[in-house]
Amino acid sequence: MKTAKIKVSGHGLFHKSGLTFSLYSCSEPMQSKRGSETGRTLQSNVLHSEAGRVFVSGDSYRKMHIYSLMISLILSVFFLYISESESVKTLKDLAVKSGGSLTIPCFYNGKYKSNPKYWCKGKYWSSCGIVARTNTRGRTLVTDYPTQNMFLVELNSLQESDSGDYWCAVEIGDKWTPDESDYLYLTVSADPAVSVINSRVSGQEEGSISVQCLYRTDYKNKQKQWCRFRDWSCLTSQNSAVQISDDGRGAVSVEMSGLKKSDAGWYWFSAGEVGVTVHLTVTERPTNTTRKSGTTLSGNTMFLWILLAAGLGLLVSVVTYLLRRMFNPAETRERISDTTVHTQSQDSKTYTKVKPNKRKPSSAAAQETDFIYVNVASASKNTTLPGTMQ
C-alpha cells in the first residue's frame, strides 16, 4: 500500500492581547522508506506521530489541507474584525436627562489623525445613517482633536426620541476597506439612571474639585465608579488623591485633591454599566512673581491713602486757622477801639468823635473801658450835628 509522509510545523498567525495563535501547515508528501522503517509505516487510514512527524494516507492529507485553509480564513476574518473594532473606542452605555446636553469623547488610532470623522445612528453598522460629520453645524457637532487622537460629539437639546443606537466612526475612504467604528447606546429620559450636577468642572494646580453625581434608586446596589478616559482606568474606592463618598440615598461625591496639569481631561461616572461624561480643566497656579506684584500694588495703594489723609488733615488745619483769624474777638475789639468813625452820606461827609467813658475799676485786678456810640444820620451840606466842628 502506498503511504504518504508529511511534516507538520506550527506557525504564529496572530498575536493579540498577549496570546499567540498557531495553525498547522503541511509540507509536500514524501515517499516512505522501505524496509528500514519497519513498524513505522502506517497502514491505510492509520495516523500516528513520531519525532514531530505525522504519517497519513493521501485522502486524509487532502482533507486536512482543506480544513487548515478554512480555519485560517475564519480566524483571519475574526481577528481582523477585533483589530478593526478597537481602532475606535468609546463608552458603551450613556444616559442623559431630556432637554439636556451631552458630550461624548471618541478615541481613535493615531494613524487616522487626518481622516474625516462622523456620528452615525442605527442598530446595525451596515445600515446606520450619518447624523453629523466633522465641523458641520447643527444640533449635533463633531469636532476633531488630532493632537489627542480624539473627536468629540456634542449633543444638544436632547429628547426622548433621540434614544437609540449610535456609532463613533472614522472614514477610511477605501472601497475595499470598511470604515472604523465603535458602538454605544444612548438613553434620554426625564429620570436618567445617572447624571451629574455639572458636566464641566475647573480647578487650580495643587487645589481640589468636587463633582456631585446622582443615580436612580434602582441603581443603589450597583457598583459606582469614577473613571478616566486617558488610560481607561477606574476607581471604586478612595485613594490619596480621589475620595468617593456614596450617601446611599442617590448621591455620590467625588473629590480630587492635589490637582496636576496632567489630571485635566475627560472622565466618566458610572453606576453599573451606565455612565455619564465629565470634563476637568486644571489651570496654572499664580507664580511668585504675580504674587509679589500684587503685594507691591497693595503697598503703593496704602501709601497713597496715607498721603491723601495727611493732605486732607493739612487742608483742614489751614482753613481752621484762617477762620479763627477772621472771627477772633480780640481783633474785633481792636477795630472797635478806633477813635474815629468815618461816615459818608450821598450828599456830604459828616464826622463825629467817639469818646471812651472810663469807669473806676471795681477791682484792682481788672479794668474795662466802655464806649458810647452815637448814631450818625445823613445831613445836607449846611447841616451841623451838635458837638461837631465845622
Rank of each mutant, 00 (worst) to 15 (best):
N328M: 04
N288L: 09
S210P: 13
P386T: 13
K292A: 03
M30W: 02
S195W: 01
E273M: 02
S298L: 15
C26R: 03
K381C: 06
R230E: 00
E84N: 09
F151A: 02
V252E: 07
Y321V: 11
N288Y: 08
K261E: 13
S317P: 01
M70Q: 05
F269N: 00
C128F: 05
V211Y: 06
Y112D: 03
G311Q: 10
T290L: 04
S98T: 07
L94I: 14
M256D: 11
I336W: 11
M302Y: 15
G203E: 02
S127A: 07
Q367K: 09
P192T: 02
Y81T: 11
R324E: 14
V211F: 07
S22H: 06
Y61R: 06
W125M: 02
S25Q: 01
G138I: 05
R34S: 13
L141Q: 12
G387V: 10
V153W: 04
I372F: 12
D218I: 10
L259K: 14
L186C: 10
S345P: 06
Q212C: 09
D347H: 15
R291S: 01
V201N: 01
E205C: 02
V142N: 05
V8C: 08
F303A: 14
I66N: 07
T352C: 08
G313D: 09
K260M: 15
G250Y: 09
S195T: 07
R324A: 10
E86K: 10
